[in-house]
Amino acid sequence: MNEPIRTQWQIRCAFNGYCKRALENEMLAAKRDLKRRRRREVTFSDLTPQEEHQLYTCDEYFANDEAEKSFVVAGKEITAKLLAEALHSLPDEKREAVLLYYFFDMSDVEIAKLLSIPRSTVQYRRTSSFELLKRYLEEHAYGKNDW
């Protein structure tokens, strides 16, 4: 009867030893990796100007921005300036609902709480704004292809 208890004790001791060995090996591997990394690391103050220049790039996409960027949709040219004017043409409360929803990624419920108005009002302001924006853009967009 004393034998099974002894076996359990031996199993527990063997497992304990295995866990300690595994942790010790992980610690040694971590120390080795840190030592290797320290040998290869260079501080920014030790870099030459040529090496510093290799660490970054400059986006040249808008560098040559003589012409205003635009896109053509359904034969109409829409510019950033025209889109901004269209948004400014909206009443303040409708513009605020559209900007919070699309540019700040807020839900109608979150906007309603922020503005202390019902959710249905937020939805109405947002959806009715599209008709106003559509009408403004149709009237003011530059036609590429007059259909």
Rank of each mutant, 00 (worst) to 15 (best):
F104M: 07
A141W: 05
R40H: 06
A30H: 02
E68C: 06
F104I: 01
L100N: 08
S128Q: 15
L55P: 03
Y56E: 08
R39K: 15
C58Y: 10
A80P: 00
E26T: 12
V98Y: 14
R135Y: 02
E93S: 04
E24L: 07
L90S: 01
V72A: 04
F103A: 05
K113C: 06
L115E: 03
V72S: 05
E24P: 06
A84D: 04
A112Q: 00
E3S: 07
L115N: 02
K35D: 09
W147T: 09
S116R: 14
S116W: 11
M1S: 09
E131G: 15
R95A: 15
K69G: 07
G75S: 09
I11Q: 14
A97K: 03
Y101S: 11
T7L: 11
R119K: 15
A74D: 12
S107T: 15
L100I: 00
V98C: 06
P49D: 09
L47G: 03
N16C: 11
E77W: 01
S107R: 07
L82D: 05
Q50K: 08
D46R: 11
K76D: 02
I5H: 00
D46Q: 12
E68D: 10
I117Q: 02
E24S: 10
K31I: 13
P91C: 04
D108L: 05
K76M: 11
E85H: 04
Y136T: 03
K35M: 11
R32C: 08
K113V: 00
K134M: 08
E131M: 12
I5G: 02
S116C: 08
Q54G: 12
R32H: 09
L34Y: 05
P118C: 08
K144S: 07
V109H: 01
R6L: 12
E26R: 15
Q123N: 12
R135C: 04
F44G: 06
A74M: 07
H140S: 03
F62W: 04
R119G: 03
L114K: 14
A80K: 10
R95F: 09
K134W: 09
E93I: 08
N145K: 12
K31W: 00
I11H: 02
A112Y: 03
S116F: 14
T121A: 08
F44V: 09
T48A: 09
D108N: 13
K94R: 15
E26K: 15
A86G: 00
F71K: 06
K76P: 01
R95L: 14
N64G: 05
G75K: 10
R36H: 08
W147S: 07
C58Q: 13
P118W: 09
V122T: 03
T7V: 11
K144T: 13
N145R: 12
A112C: 01
F44Y: 10
I5K: 10
A112V: 05
S45C: 05
Y142Q: 11
Y56K: 07
F62T: 00
A67T: 08
K81L: 01
Q8I: 08
Q10Y: 00
L132C: 05
P91L: 09
L132E: 09
E138S: 11
R21M: 10
C13Q: 14
D65T: 07
E131D: 15
E24Q: 08
E66T: 14
V72F: 03
R126M: 09
R125C: 05
